[in-house]
């Protein structure tokens, strides 16, 4: 009985993001059957890919019990770099993006060595990223490199590309973080840092790796967003910060304890992206959409907490 209780809880935890997404899709397809097409899904999930990448960046940080409040303005900065330097002189652009990833790794080192709260450091950095982006691109504009625009507007005949891209992102992060042996070490630092130190692993190295990965996925998110919108603006992705946290939590990650789920997180992002469409089909004004996303989050978290309490 004990065994089955544990089983049912872990199954529930894993299934919750998928069930939420299916319920939402069912609602949408009932309200608007014409959305059930490759074109319809492409349209509804057009912006899901950059959000999914940014949420993966957040997931790496959450996995070691930190929180990144700067990912939104960082994605905006990357988009600005992409729309200016990367377009005009690709070499400079690539170097600048590499420097961004390196800066993230250094932030991780700073947070670990000085024992600073990650929330404070990343909140401060969010203004730094935003300021740099405004200096680079004072008014909205610039242009996406052609290859990037073509890549992001690629459409296959029978399958919705955003769904395929989401599956690839989920599979790649799942393999790297959940299946490889160094990914296990990295997650171990979220579970019990003291035990990891006692086993002789370097926490500095793990923290820097996780922050560098977050920086890398932030860069990918910025480029994906630029490819879709074809021009950039420093404020283009500010709401990604909270969306990424919401997506990760909706997908079954926890703020402490190193429990993360890349697959669930991608499902959570798709849910958040579709929530807007569902409300449009319900003829609810867009003003309410952010609030509705919050409401979905509260309902799902309440469900999870209720089940956890019942099991214990």
């Amino acid at each position: 009985m004990f065994q089955s209780a544990i089983l049912s809880q872990s199954v529930f935890r894993a299934a919750l993001p998928a069930v939420t997404l299916i319920l939402l899709l069912a609602t949408i397809f009932t309200l608007q059957p014409r959305a059930m097409s490759v074109f319809g899904i492409n349209l509804m999930l057009n912006l899901a890919v950059p959000i999914a990448l940014a949420t993966m960046a957040q997931l790496f940080i959450i996995a070691i019990n930190d929180l990144d409040l700067s990912i939104g303005s960082f994605v905006g900065l990357v988009a600005c770099i992409g729309a200016t330097w990367l377009n005009d002189s690709p070499l400079l652009g690539v170097a600048a993006l590499a420097a961004c990833v390196l800066a993230y790794a250094c932030l991780g080192a700073l947070i670990h060595i000085r024992r600073l709260p990650s929330i404070v450091v990343t909140l401060g950095m969010s203004f730094v990223w935003l300021g740099l982006a405004v200096m680079l691109l004072p008014t909205p504009g610039g242009a996406s490199p052609t290859w990037l625009r073509q890549l992001m507007s690629f459409r296959a005949p029978y399958v919705p590309v955003p769904i395929v891209a989401s599956i690839i992102i989920a599979a790649a992060v799942h393999y790297g973080l959940m299946r490889t042996s160094y990914g296990t070490i990295l997650r171990g630092f979220g579970g019990n840092p003291q035990a990891m130190r006692r086993s002789g692993w370097s926490m500095l190295r793990a923290t820097m790796t996780m922050y560098a990965l977050a920086g890398l996925f932030g860069v990918l998110a910025g480029l994906a967003l630029l490819g879709i919108s074809t021009s950039a603006d420093a404020n283009i992705a500010l709401r990604y910060t909270l969306l990424s946290i919401a997506g990760a939590i909706l997908g079954g990650c926890e703020f402490v304890g190193g429990r993360v789920s890349p697959v669930g997180t991608v499902l959570g992002v798709l849910t958040l992206a579709l929530a807007g469409s569902a409300l449009t089909f319900l003829r609810i004004s867009p003003d309410w959409q952010v609030g509705a996303q919050g409401a979905i989050l509260i309902v799902v978290l309440a469900l999870r907490a209720a089940v956890a309490r019942k099991e214990s």
Partner: peptide
Amino acid sequence: FQELSLCGNLTVAENTRLLHPRLRGWNW
């Protein structure tokens, strides 16, 4: 140790890996 030093978020097998740098690569 007296106070347990396992990582709760990892599986039993993954916790074993923490102790053994050799457990890596294919099929670890």
